[in-house]
Amino acid sequence: MKKEIDDGLLRDPLCVVNVGLEGFAADLEAQGLTVTQVDWTPPAGGDARLADILSKLGT
């Protein structure tokens, strides 16, 4: 099924929100785009054991 793309998306100036590697945001900024980098890290800094405990305890 073909999905229609809003051609305004690419015609108007892009405002990008980046979640994850800051390098993606830096590359886009270097091309003059407005980028907001989300300050995000994996739960428990990526420690699998602690993340498992957190998932069981719930927050």
Binding site: T41, P43, A44, G45, L50, L54, L57, G58, T59
Partner: peptide, 10 residues
């Protein structure tokens, strides 16, 4: 202070 939130968020 909730220790779960401290560890989860860093």
């Amino acid at each position: 202070i909730d220790i779960r939130l401290v560890v989860e968020t860093g």
